[in-house]
């Protein structure tokens, strides 16, 4: 309502000035079209040749930079993962080799101990055998001597008790019969 009254009121004024409502005045069209073509043409040229390539360049550089940084971060992450894996691997290996070293040295020590024990046992057995042999010899010798002593004693006893003498061969025979 306000607008229409205002419109009506001013229509006259406008008509008074040029006779037509200015936006619909065809006499101004050529000038407006020409200047629009010039200004918009220049604007289009500036936008398409300067501003748009520049902004798309800026955005492209930024996108590339972000992509590159992300790639770099990814690469570094992979590197650190690899280093971690290598570390784990080496740790496992070290643990395994420590274990095997321990095992080897334990085995070796055991083997050496066994060997030593075997050697000393053999030596001891040898000594034991030698001693037994010596004991046997000594015993035999002693027994032999016992026979002699017995014979002598028998001869002496017989001489003392019976008087007279018995041949040595007979005595030996009798002693042997008793002791054997």
């Amino acid at each position: 309502m306000f607008i229409s009254t205002a419109f009506a009121a001013t229509e006259e004024a406008a008509h008074g000035a040029t006779g037509v409502f200015p936006p619909f005045d065809p006499s101004s069209f050529a000038s407006q079209l020409l200047w629009l073509a010039i200004t918009f043409g220049i604007f289009y040229y500036l936008m398409s040749k300067v501003v748009i390539p520049r902004i798309s360049g800026i955005l492209g550089v930024r996108r590339d930079r972000i992509t590159r940084d992300l790639d770099e971060a990814q690469r570094l992450k992979e590197e650190s993962d690899a280093a971690l894996a290598a570390y784990e691997q080496e740790l496992t290996e070290a643990r395994n080799s420590a274990h095997s070293i321990a095992q080897t040295s334990k085995d070796k020590a055991k083997a050496e101990a066994d060997e030593k024990r075997a050697t000393s046992e053999a030596a001891l057995n040898e000594k034991l055998a030698a001693s037994e042999k010596q004991i046997a010899t000594i015993k035999a010798k002693a027994l032999g001597e016992v026979d002699g002593i017995a014979s002598v004693a028998v001869a002496e006893i017989v001489k003392e008790l019976v008087g007279g003498s018995i041949s040595k061969a007979e005595i030996d025979k009798a002693v042997a019969a008793v002791t054997r």
Binding site: S28, A30, S31, L34, W35, T39, F40, I42, F43, V51
Partner: peptide
Amino acid sequence: DISFTNSSLFMVVTVAATA
């Protein structure tokens, strides 16, 4: 008539300022 009008002036101003 291809006069440089106030409309033309503001086209120029718009383009110049924006660019």
